[in-house]
Design a protein around this nucleic acid. Structure first.
Length: 288
DNA sequence: CAACCGTGGAA
DNA sequence: TTTCCAAGGTT
């Protein structure tokens, strides 16, 4: 197998986007906030919110000093607002258990709320220059194509996949971190899920999928989430009412936001249960 | 481990 | 218009 590192690292050097959390002066906290926001949310929508967050809460301590409701409100319409709650809880844990400094070790990071394998590896790598296998949807897709010769990876990370990624990870710490972000960037900009630009790919002549004639995906059906009429939509609608209001809101305002009463009641209860909504009176609700 | 958790832009 | 999906995590 010819070497993938040089062409990908060189491509990244020439084509990497200038993102705030990638700048040399970016703090570990800036990287951490970006990783939370980027979970299932495109870069373009994260950029303005990330800037507002870092301006308002430049450190974990600054965020931890606020109520969780302020975090939820400032999360805006990024989606999956439980991430805001978890980021707030993670900031609190960092203050209480790590002296206010974002941990550098994978295990310490993984113990934080809202931090899973990917995010722990990403923060350790991108904020602290540690050497970890970073497996996100982009990296998985690039390796699925270049190495395995298939259009898309399996629904969940496999052992074989992790071994491939481990085997390709450069030995040098700093190079390993750059390698990971470079492969991610390649997946985000060139080796995209739909309409990959193989003509612009630095490893096109080494890609197993392209060599095989870009065969169509042949695995189990990929899950597509329903939306209309789901609890997710209902919860989003209810939370939106609270987010767009300055103070507590009467239940009638929420009633007006969703017609199906049984579903509305169930979703409101689940929002309260999640800590995204607080019941502040017999008939009034607010952000926590 | 499959299901659940938001949102909006592109194709 | 409908479908797809974007730097996942939790239960």
């Amino acid at each position: 197998m010819s070497d993938l590192h040089e062409p990908i690292l060189r491509w990244y050097d020439e084509h990497a986007r200038d993102l705030p959390w990638r700048r040399p002066d970016a703090s570990a906290w800036s990287v951490m906030v970006s990783e939370f926001m980027l979970q299932q949310t495109p870069v373009a929508r994260v950029l303005p919110v990330h800037e507002q967050w870092l301006e308002r809460w430049p450190t974990p301590a600054a965020l931890a000093a606020e109520s969780s409701g302020e975090a939820v409100r400032a999360w805006g319409r990024l989606g999956y607002p439980r991430r805001a709650l978890r980021l707030h809880a993670a900031a609190t844990a960092i203050v209480e258990e790590h002296g206010g400094q974002v941990p550098a070790s994978y295990d310490d990071l993984l113990a934080l709320p809202g931090v899973g394998d990917y995010t722990a590896a990403a923060i350790a790598s991108f904020a602290h220059g540690r050497r970890h296998v970073v497996l996100d949807t982009n990296v998985r897709r690039v390796f699925a194509r270049a190495i395995a010769g298939v259009e898309f990876p399996a629904p969940s990370v496999t052992k074989a996949e992790r071994e491939v990624a481990r085997g390709l990870l450069p030995e040098d710490e700093a190079t390993a971190a750059t390698w990971s972000v470079a492969v991610m960037e390649l997946g985000a900009l060139v080796c995209t899920a739909a309409g990959p630009r193989c003509d612009a790919c630095p490893i096109a002549d080494q890609c197993a999928w392209r060599a095989a004639g870009r065969p169509a995906y042949d695995g189990p059906p990929r899950k597509v989430q329903a939306w209309a009429g789901t609890d997710r939509q209902c919860r989003g609608r209810l939370l939106g009412v609270l987010r767009d209001s300055d103070g507590p809101v009467h239940r009638s305002r929420l009633d007006a936001a969703w017609s199906d009463e049984a579903q509305r009641v169930r979703c409101l209860a689940s929002l309260v249960d999640d800590g995204l909504v607080a019941r502040v009176g017999p008939e009034t609700y607010a952000l926590p």
